[in-house]
């Protein structure tokens, strides 16, 4: 699954202009759900305090969107392109290392 590191806005593959829409908005290529920016309606985003995190992986397993992955330092972080801001990771974190910050836009 292609992970987009983009914080927010650079146009993703699925974010077509109106002239690029297929007839009837039909989907002609399988597996294009990875192009869908499900992260665009969140009102809060998870912010991890890596000093508190002990890499227990609970956030990784509880995330209903499956958008939390291990970064190069072995800590777990959400891909904000997909994260809907549900806050389950923050609620489950036994170390209270995840805070939900207001989306400032």
């Amino acid at each position: 699954m292609a992970k987009t590191k983009a914080k927010e806005k650079p146009r993703a593959k699925g974010e077509l202009g109106w002239k690029e829409i297929e007839i009837g908005f039909f989907i002609t290529e399988p597996g294009n759900s990875v192009e869908v920016r499900t992260g665009d309606w969140k009102s809060r985003r998870p912010v991890v305090d890596f000093k508190k995190c002990n890499k227990c992986t609970l956030c990784y397993f509880f995330c209903p969107e499956g958008c939390i992955a291990k970064n190069k330092d072995g800590f777990f972080e959400a891909d904000l392109f997909y994260c809907k801001g549900c806050g389950i990771c923050a609620a489950e974190c036994p170390k209270e290392a995840i805070a939900m910050a207001e989306e400032a836009k």
């Binding site: 699925g14 974010e15 077509l16 202009g17 109106w18 002239k19 690029e20 829409i21 297929e22 007839i23 009837g24 908005f25 039909f26 989907i27 002609t28 399988p30 869908v36 920016r37 499900t38 665009d40 309606w41």
Partner: peptide
């Protein structure tokens, strides 16, 4: 041009999230 055909599958009537719905409706209007 894009009929339902098992040899060349397409999805019709998929979900249109907020990130695409406006573009789809504008294309329809134009």
């Amino acid at each position: 041009p894009l009929p339902l055909d098992p040899k060349k599958p397409v999805t019709m009537g998929a979900l249109g999230s907020p990130f695409i719905y406006t573009e789809v409706k504008w294309a329809q209007e134009i």
